[in-house]
């Protein structure tokens, strides 16, 4: 971290439009606000949402002013999909932490055979060129086990808290989930977040 920017945690979240990246960013920020922390969220809406690549930023700390996280400044890169994680790997700072779901969602160009999807090992190899701190697990599997593929973002939310990088307690995180969703989805979402939390806690 830079000397003059020491009290800001930069979190970049990336995935495919429709995976719930924006919702995760908002809930993460709500939980931060509940902890009395200053926070900024940067989002892009519109064209970027239509099944394309999405990246969202959450900046927590008193020095957070603008929404942008530049290359080499993210403390934590959260990837909902391997290739989308790789697409934003330039954001990670030296020794920053990458939290990645290994579940693949094929881009149309790959389905049409105009390009190939890299192997998982090749993706990990490229990420290692930026940081050695990689937490890699199948979050989609955990989401489905919790009751719905739609809970993927809550698995990732739990996982973020599990890294201990973000100054938000598990209790505040779960409260933010309860306050943000209709009651009928609460059980699945909480279960998903717990699953993500436990999965990551066991490897940090």
């Amino acid at each position: 971290m830079n000397a003059n920017n020491h009290n800001t945690i930069n979190i970049a979240i990336t995935g495919v439009g429709g995976q719930g990246v924006l919702t995760l960013a908002e809930i993460l920020a709500k939980a931060a606000l509940a902890e009395q922390l200053n926070v900024r969220v940067g989002e892009i809406h519109g064209m970027a949402q239509r099944g394309g690549h999405v990246v969202c930023t959450v900046r927590i700390g008193t020095d957070a002013m603008g929404p942008i996280i530049d290359s080499g400044t993210a403390d934590l890169l959260v990837g909902f999909e391997p290739v989308e994680t790789l697409r934003e790997i330039h954001l990670i700072k030296k020794n920053g932490c990458v939290l990645m779901s290994s579940h693949v969602q094929y881009p149309v160009a790959v389905s049409m055979g105009t390009t190939e999807y890299p192997t998982h090992e090749s993706i990990l190899q490229s990420i290692r060129g930026f940081t050695k701190r990689i937490i890699d697990f199948d979050a989609m599997d955990l989401a489905q086990n919790s009751g719905s593929s739609y809970a993927l973002n809550m698995v990732m939310f739990g996982a973020i808290i599990g890294t201990g990088i973000v100054p938000i307690s598990k209790e505040s995180a779960l409260r933010a989930i309860r306050e943000s969703f209709p009651k009928k989805f609460e059980k699945i979402n909480i279960q998903a977040a717990e699953a993500g939390f436990d999965r990551v806690k066991s490897c940090v």
Partner: peptide, 16 residues
């Protein structure tokens, strides 16, 4: 280093 990664397939926005 980033531009050295050559195998990232594009994922442009598309019809749902």
């Amino acid at each position: 280093r980033f531009h050295g990664i050559s195998d990232i397939p594009p994922r442009p926005p598309l019809l749902c």
